[in-house]
Design a protein around this nucleic acid. Structure first.
Length: 457
RNA sequence: GUGGCUGUAGCUCAGCUGGUUAGAGCAUCAGAUUGUGGUUCUGAGGGUCGUGGGUUCGAACCCCAUCAGCCACCCCA
């Protein structure tokens, strides 16, 4: 018998952790609901072709594939071997695998919209809180199974959606207590325009990947990487000019305007960003909304404004991201449904909140009242009282066996139970009990009737 | 997929240039204390030193392999 272990990158969540995670989920869910978003759930697994090719080559490698059943069937052995050859060559084979765990929530959502667009009321605003899986190598802040909380609007190209999504980030983070966050924004069309200035829109990916690392590796390394990708000196200087735009959002806007002068694609992007910035009306006076032309984001279906949220006090990578995609459902044969969405990375938000001690202490109180067990006769009375309290929504438990006070007190302490009720033979005679507040160490005699009407806090 | 670091009690770790029976704190359990917890005191249990092999009179320590965990790169939440 070997010690049981977890698959790498997965975790068990104990009671206190689940409480904290649920706190994050319900906070975000409430914000989503308040903005008129509706819940959606999709299966853990999708047909593999629904997912493949949607996340770029790197993404394809990280999709968790599910082995088909019945591969051991001797009648199909010949075929199975042949199919497996394809897998060895790096191809997908439906004979070996035809399903995969979902990689994110956006593509399954697009699949859902494509399948149900005739019934949906547009614009369709949905939120989705579910686990996703990636065959990545785990490390700090990076897991193989993790939750995403997505909110997307499809069927509308109004920038009002971007404005609302930015405000959702602001509301959710401020309610969670993460005051010091940054929401950085950029526009894919600006990146495209830069690529056009450098000789071709097809270079956008190379440029984006390189400049995205600017704050991490510095300008020189970025240039080195671009040289490796065969960019000329002239192109490099264009990119360097682009990267040297700095200042307030306003200053950056005027900088980018002069750089991308007369570029139709770029101008459209600039106009949209300008609209978002001036109309966003974040509670925090826009201080957390930051224009960042180095922001690229990996997912290659984005076409418009892109978002990325980071917590400033904790270096853990982004805690949320999103953007606009013009034609996501086109991949599934239903064209012309534009959309925009954002995602919260709950696991990372958890780590941030833990590090900054932002969880309310009240989350750790599960049971409110512990009834001491002083014997069978006493317990019977306690049990009746306890059931009446439970009817009133007070969370109670009766100690499971008669034992000395020491143990029962320590149990209450360890479980962080704020009140204990002591009810023995003496108390039964007067129809009373002793109610003790453990934190204050104070104890009072109280009638059964008063106990039932006591306001436990 | 590529590279680096670390594996000693349930947890955090000590363990000298290789030397006899591997330690500490916390946690657990019991007692001091059979109707009043948190503090304190006393005691107890708990180890294949990740695993397998090698070198050696002798290995937790050195060598090889292997497994696991962590971190970084790529990419990403």
């Amino acid at each position: 018998m070997t010690k049981p272990t977890l698959p790498p990158g997965t975790r068990d969540f104990g009671p206190d952790v689940v409480r904290k995670r649920n706190y994050i989920f319900s906070t975000i869910r409430n914000v989503f609901e308040r903005y008129g978003f509706q819940p959606l759930e999709t299966p853990a697994m999708e047909n593999i072709e629904t997912l493949m090719g949607k996340y770029g080559d790197e993404g394809d490698k990280l999709i968790f594939k599910i082995l088909n059943n019945g591969l051991a069937n001797p009648e199909k052995e010949e075929l199975t071997r042949k199919e497996f050859e394809k897998v060895l060559q790096g191809k997908n084979s439906k004979g070996i695998t035809e399903r995969a765990l979902k990689y994110d929530l956006t593509i399954p959502f697009a699949r859902y919209v494509a399948m149900n667009h005739a019934q949906l009321i547009f614009p369709f605003k949905r939120y989705q809180i579910q686990p996703v899986w990636r065959a990545d190598r785990p490390q700090k802040g990076r897991y193989r199974e993790f939750y995403q909380c997505d909110a997307d609007v499809v069927g509308s190209d109004s920038l009002l959606n971007e404005i609302e999504l930015a405000n959702i980030y602001n509301d959710a983070f401020s309610q969670l207590g993460i005051k010091n966050y940054e929401l950085r924004i950029n526009h894919r069309k600006i990146l495209t325009a830069l690529a056009e200035l450098c000789g071709g829109a097809e270079k956008m990916n190379d440029i984006a990947i390189a400049i995205d690392k600017l704050d991490k590796i510095g300008l020189e390394k970025v240039k080195e990487e671009l040289v490796r990708k065969h960019f000329s000196a002239a192109q490099l200087s264009v990119i360097e000019n682009y990267l040297s735009i700095y200042g307030t959002n306003k200053e950056k806007l005027s900088g980018i305007k002069s750089l991308l002068l007369n570029n139709v694609t770029g101008e459209k992007g600039i106009k949209e960003l300008e609209h978002l910035i001036t109309n966003c009306r974040l509670v925090a006076q826009n201080s957390s909304l930051i224009l960042d032309f180095t922001l690229a984001r990996g997912l290659n279906y984005y076409t418009g404004i892109i978002f990325e949220a980071t917590a400033k006090d904790v270096s853990i990578g982004s805690i949320g991201g999103g953007g606009r995609y013009d034609d996501l459902t086109g991949l599934f044969g239903v064209p012309n449904i534009p959309g925009v969405g954002i995602s919260f990375g709950v696991d990372r938000i958890y780590d941030v909140m833990e590090e900054l001690s932002l969880f309310p202490a009240s989350l750790q109180v599960s049971t409110q009242v512990l009834f001491f067990n002083l014997g069978d006769a006493e317990s019977n009375v306690s049990f009746d009282l306890m059931q009446q309290l439970r009817q009133k929504n007070i969370r109670c438990e009766l100690y499971h066996e008669k034992t000395k006070f020491d143990k029962q007190f320590k149990y209450a302490e360890k479980k962080n139970i704020p009140y204990v009720v002591i009810l023995g033979g003496e108390e039964i005679k007067n129809k009373s009990c002793k109610l003790k507040n453990l934190a204050e160490g104070k104890q009072q005699d109280i009638s059964w009737n008063d106990l039932l009407n006591y306001s436990f806090t």
